[in-house]
Simulated assay, not measured.
Amino acid sequence: MVQIVPPGVYYAVPLVDTFRKVDLRVRTVEVPRQSVITRDGVSCSVDAVIYYSVVNAAAAICNVASYANSTFLLGQTTLRSVLGQVDLDTLLAKRDQIGEEMRKVLDKETESWGIRVSNVEIRDVVLPSDMIRFMASQAEAERERRAKIISADGEFQSSQKLAEAAAVMQREPMTLQLRYLQTLAQISAENNSTIVFPLPIDIFKALARNAESSPVSNAVH
């Protein structure tokens, strides 16, 4: 007859009664590093930590010889089984999701032992050195691709602005002359030197037309 009693002082009849103390606190099991082959054929080493507690002391004592050792061994096999169904990218990016899947599997298997698995964490993933070099080169190529896309996008936007400016200058020829004079003013301000430059003939034509049409010139004639 199995009887579960709360904490306290009890008397046991020698050679008749036996008692076992069961710790109901949360316990941890460190699953040592396991060699795993992912779904895409990559070999890696993974370790994990399992958090569990006893919720049914009678089942933990009567239904399994050693619930602690059984949970440890089950964690090893479950780790290899679950990780063999995912690819490497998923393993590296979704550790929490994989840990939750492992927790559900372990919790279901240990329910008859009076065990509740509260959490499973994938602690470390060790990759072969050649795979690390390959991933580094792949990441570098991806960064270069993004940099080229950003540079090409900037050149495209710049060409659009230049085309718009050229269209404005084509409609208004004087804007080109004003821009020319502005550039010369900037050059003279930056360098303290004498600059000799050709003056566009269009400016003289415009000045001549203004002089001919002014009232002063008409009075002289």
Rank of each mutant, 00 (worst) to 15 (best):
S159E: 12
R103M: 02
E155Y: 07
D153F: 04
R143F: 03
A165H: 09
R145Q: 15
F156T: 05
Q160V: 15
I132G: 08
V120M: 05
L127P: 06
M102P: 05
G114Y: 02
L106N: 14
K161A: 12
D124S: 14
R145I: 07
G114A: 04
V126A: 15
S118F: 00
D107G: 10
V125E: 10
G154C: 06
S151I: 00
E100Y: 10
F156P: 00
R116C: 13
R146E: 14
Q160M: 12
L162D: 13
S112V: 12
R133L: 11
A165N: 08
R145H: 11
E121G: 00
V117T: 08
V117A: 04
R146K: 13
S158M: 08
A136C: 04
D124C: 07
D124A: 13
Q157Y: 04
N119V: 10
V126P: 10
V125P: 13
R123A: 09
A141M: 10
G114M: 00
V120W: 03
F134D: 09
Q138R: 07
E164Y: 07
M135A: 03
S129D: 11
K108D: 07
R143Q: 12
D153E: 02
Q138T: 06
E121M: 03
A163C: 11
G154M: 03
K161S: 06
K148A: 12
D153W: 04
Q138C: 01
E155N: 01
K108H: 06
M131L: 14
E111K: 14
M102I: 03
M135D: 03
K104G: 01
A147W: 00
T110G: 08
G99A: 03
Q160C: 07
S137G: 00
G99K: 02
S158D: 06
S129L: 08
F134N: 12
Q160L: 15
S137V: 00
N119W: 10
A136D: 12
E144A: 09
L162K: 15
L106R: 14
L127N: 05
P128C: 10
E140N: 03
I115Q: 07
E101W: 10
M135E: 00
S112Y: 11
A139K: 07
V117C: 11
M102L: 07
E140W: 00
K148R: 15
W113D: 03
R133E: 10
I122C: 05
S118V: 01
A165W: 02
K108E: 09
R103Y: 06
A152D: 01
A166P: 00
E111R: 14
T110C: 12
S118H: 04
E109Q: 15
L106Q: 15
R143K: 11
R116W: 11
I132T: 12
F156W: 00
E109M: 14
D124T: 15
F134M: 02
W113S: 06
V125S: 07
D107N: 15
N119K: 15
M135P: 08
R123C: 13
M131Q: 13
V117E: 08
R143S: 09
V120H: 09
E142L: 09
D130A: 06
R145E: 14
S129P: 09
K161Q: 00
I132Q: 11
W113F: 13
E155W: 01
N119I: 05
A152C: 00
G154L: 03
K104T: 01
R146P: 01
R116I: 12
E144F: 05
R143H: 06
I115C: 11
M102K: 06
E109S: 14
S118N: 06
V105T: 13
S151V: 03
E140R: 09
F156K: 10
E164K: 12
